[in-house]
Amino acid sequence: MDRLDAAHTLRPVGIGDGAALARAYRRNREHLAPWEPVRDDGFFDEGWHEHDVAQYVADAPAGRNVRLVIASDDGEIRGRVNLNNIVRGAFCSADLGYWVESTRQGRGLATRAVELALRHARQDLMLHRVQAATLVHNTASQRVLAANGFEQIGLAPRYLLIAGAWQDHILFQRLLEDPVTGRPGRP
């Protein structure tokens, strides 16, 4: 577990997190709706999340994904950070995704959680590159990426089916060997 601030940690998702994940997604249903795929009612069920967590834990040794949660000291989940689609070999890369609960935004949690995920990607997973994509109008997420040394590398038209429509995304990458200038201690 890594400390994000005085009240939050970043830790791997684990068996037993299904109920807290379901509560987090229900609390943030409206907040996340513009940024995620359309979710049916079953997605917000505790059992759905516990099954998803169990599947991830079973698949974890294959090393294709890393799923982390932002947990508050009261045991509630306040956000997520994922390194998905990890590819080894000549590519040695992963896709980054993250979100923070609406009531916890503006505290630096996402910036710090992404920083720690990048450190893990570089030091433990030995990755070369991490890619992220944001909706064109998601300036808050773009600030998180910029603070962590990501550079914009392109625009992907109709990239993902978000909020029921194929939407354009700005693509970013972070080459993990490159230092982030002006931000001491960054990966």
Rank of each mutant, 00 (worst) to 15 (best):
1 M>H: 14
2 D>F: 15
2 D>E: 15
3 R>P: 12
3 R>M: 10
4 L>I: 08
4 L>T: 01
8 H>I: 05
11 R>D: 08
11 R>Y: 08
12 P>W: 14
16 G>H: 07
17 D>Y: 04
17 D>K: 09
18 G>T: 11
18 G>V: 08
19 A>F: 10
22 A>R: 09
24 A>K: 09
25 Y>T: 06
26 R>S: 11
26 R>H: 06
27 R>F: 05
27 R>K: 10
27 R>M: 06
29 R>F: 04
30 E>F: 07
34 P>Q: 03
34 P>C: 03
36 E>C: 07
41 D>W: 12
42 G>H: 10
46 E>L: 06
47 G>A: 11
49 H>V: 03
51 H>K: 15
52 D>C: 11
53 V>G: 07
56 Y>M: 10
56 Y>R: 12
56 Y>W: 13
59 D>Y: 12
63 G>A: 06
65 N>W: 13
66 V>W: 14
66 V>Q: 14
66 V>A: 14
66 V>T: 13
66 V>C: 13
68 L>M: 11
68 L>C: 05
69 V>W: 08
70 I>S: 04
71 A>H: 11
72 S>V: 14
72 S>N: 14
73 D>Y: 06
74 D>S: 13
74 D>N: 15
74 D>R: 12
75 G>T: 07
75 G>R: 07
77 I>N: 08
77 I>D: 09
77 I>Y: 12
81 V>Q: 08
81 V>C: 08
82 N>M: 14
83 L>F: 13
83 L>G: 07
85 N>I: 07
86 I>S: 01
86 I>L: 05
94 A>F: 11
94 A>Q: 09
95 D>A: 14
96 L>S: 09
96 L>W: 09
97 G>P: 07
100 V>L: 11
100 V>Y: 12
100 V>R: 06
102 S>D: 15
102 S>L: 15
103 T>E: 10
104 R>G: 10
105 Q>L: 11
105 Q>C: 14
105 Q>A: 08
110 A>F: 05
110 A>Q: 04
111 T>Y: 03
112 R>Y: 02
113 A>I: 04
113 A>N: 05
116 L>T: 05
117 A>Q: 03
117 A>V: 08
118 L>P: 02
121 A>Y: 05
123 Q>V: 04
123 Q>D: 11
123 Q>L: 05
124 D>E: 15
125 L>M: 04
126 M>D: 10
126 M>C: 12
126 M>S: 12
126 M>K: 05
127 L>H: 00
128 H>L: 04
131 Q>D: 04
132 A>K: 05
135 L>M: 01
136 V>P: 00
136 V>M: 03
137 H>T: 11
140 A>E: 04
141 S>Q: 01
149 G>V: 02
150 F>A: 00
153 I>M: 01
159 Y>D: 01
161 L>T: 00
161 L>D: 03
163 A>G: 01
165 A>Q: 03
165 A>S: 08
168 D>Q: 00
171 L>C: 02
171 L>P: 03
172 F>Q: 01
172 F>P: 00
172 F>Y: 01
175 L>R: 10
175 L>C: 04
176 L>K: 00
176 L>S: 00
177 E>V: 06
179 P>F: 02
180 V>K: 02
180 V>M: 00
180 V>G: 00
180 V>W: 01
182 G>D: 02
184 P>A: 03
184 P>D: 04
186 R>N: 01
